[in-house]
Write a protein that binds this DNA or RNA. Structure first.
Lengths: 215, 215
DNA sequence: CCATTTACGCTACTGCAGTTGCGAAAAGGC
DNA sequence: GCCTTTTCGCAACTGCAGTAGCGTAAATGG
C-alpha cells in the first residue's frame, strides 16, 4: 500500500509534512482556528507557503488532516453489558468534545462554544471533499459502537424494527446537538440519563422504568 | 418597548437597515455564505461599508440577524395526539433544514452539505454574543414543541423521570446530527421512525412495538 | 444661533487566505 | 552528461474582512 512508487521528478520532502502538521497543531492549540494564520504555520515549519498549499488546498483541508491525526482513539469496552459499554463510550466522547471547546481560547469557565468541532462541521459543509473526509472519519470512529449495538441485537436484547443507526443517531445526536446548538454542558449524569432513556425505547423486553420516582 | 427614545445626536437611518438586510438576503441566496462579500452588500444597499459595521460588528453577526429575520415560523399543531403533532413539527423542521442545504449553491442533487446552518453554528462558536443570540433563537423556536411534551406529560402519557428536554434532545439531536455530521438526507420516513422510536422510550404505558416484524 | 452629540460617507489602511510566475534543486530516463 | 519531470522557495499579487481618520449631515439642548 505505501509503495514508494519511485516517481519521475523531485521527490516530496516527506519530512516537511510532519513539521507542518506539528507546527499547525501547536498553533491551533495556542490560538484557536480563527487566529491561526497559514503564513505563520509555514514560517514555523520552515517551509514556503506555496509548499503548504501544494499539500492541502485550503486552511480547512489542513484542519481536517490535523484533526484526523490528533483524533485519539476512543476505546470501546465490550463487556456484554450494553448499557455499561455505551455509557463508557459516550462518556469518553463527551469528554473529548468538552475538551475541544476550549482549544485555543482563554479558558473561560462558562465557555459554551463548540470550538474546533463547529469549525470542522463548517469546513465539511464548505468543501465536498472535506465533507467526505469528515464523514469517513466519523464512520471509522462510530464503527465499533455500532457493532456493539448489532451484537446486542443478535443476543436478542433489542427490538426488531429499530435499526442500530437510528439508535446511534439518538445517542450521538443528543450529544452533538448540545455541543453545537444549545451549548449546554454535557456531564456524566446526562450521558447516563440519555443511555437509559434511549435503551428503554430500544430494548426488546419492556424494561422497568430505570428511575421509578412515582410518589 | 419600541420607544423612539429621542436620543441626542443624528438619528439612525432605520430605512437603511431594511435595505441592507434585503440586499444581504438576496446575496446570500445567490452565492452562499463564503462568496458573500460585505463590500457588495454595502454597494447594493447604497450604503457605506462603515455604516454596515456600525450595526453588525462582523459578517457573522449580520448572518444571524438575517437568519433570525428569515426564520419562517414553524407552525405547531396541537391536536392532542402527541405522535402526530411531533411528526408534523419535525417534518417541517426537516424540510426547512433540507432547504438550507442548497442555499447559494449550484443545485447539486446529491448535496450532503449542511450549508448555512453549519456556518451559523460556527459563527455561534466564534463569538460569545452570537452564540447567545443563536441559542435564544432556538429556544424561542423550540418553546412550543417543548410545551407539547409538557402537556402530554400532564395528560399522563409520558414516563415520570424522563425530562422533556432530554426527549427533545433525542429528536432534534438526531436531525441535526444527520444534517451537520453524517450528512445523510432526512426524509419523511426517517422522521416518523425517529418519533416512534423515541416515544417508545418516553411513553408511560409500555406501548406495543410500533413495527411488529417478528417472523 | 451655536455647541454638542451621534450617524454617515469616503478613503486609505492592515491582516490573512489563496494565487501566480519564475528560477533553482533533486530526482529519473537516455 | 543532458533532458524531462516534479518539487521547492521566493516575491509579488488579488480579494475580502475589518479598522482608522476625517470631514460632513442631522438631530438635541441651551
Amino acid at each position: 500500500m505505501t509503495a514508494p512508487a519511485a516517481r519521475r521528478g523531485r521527490p516530496r520532502n516527506e519530512d516537511a509534512d510532519g513539521r507542518i502538521l506539528e507546527a499547525a497543531r501547536k498553533l491551533l492549540f495556542e490560538r484557536g482556528y480563527d487566529r491561526f494564520a497559514m503564513d505563520e504555520v509555514a514560517a514555523r515549519a520552515q517551509v514556503a507557503k506555496t509548499t503548504l498549499y501544494r499539500r492541502w488546498p485550503t486552511k480547512d483541508h489542513l484542519l481536517v488532516a490535523l484533526v484526523a491525526r490528533i483524533q485519539d482513539e476512543v476505546p470501546v469496552a465490550d463487556t456484554g453489558d450494553l448499557r455499561r459499554d455505551l455509557v463508557v463510550y459516550l462518556t469518553a466522547v463527551a469528554t473529548g468534545l468538552n475538551g475541544m471547546r476550549a482549544v485555543g481560547r482563554p479558558g473561560a469557565p462558562g465557555d459554551r462554544s463548540a470550538g474546533v468541532v463547529a469549525e470542522l462541521v463548517a469546513a465539511a459543509a464548505r468543501h465536498p471533499d472535506v465533507g467526505d473526509a469528515v464523514r469517513a472519519l466519523f464512520a471509522r470512529r462510530n464503527a465499533l459502537p455500532l457493532a456493539l449495538l448489532d451484537r446486542a441485537r443478535e443476543r436478542g436484547e433489542l427490538r426488531t424494527g429499530c435499526s442500530s443507526e437510528l439508535v446511534f443517531d439518538q445517542l450521538a445526536g443528543a450529544l452533538y446537538y448540545r455541543l453545537l446548538v444549545t451549548g449546554e454542558p454535557i456531564g456524566a449524569e446526562y450521558v447516563e440519563e440519555l443511555v437509559d432513556q434511549v435503551l428503554v425505547g430500544a430494548a426488546a423486553t419492556p424494561r422497568p422504568d430505570p428511575r421509578p420516582e412515582r410518589t
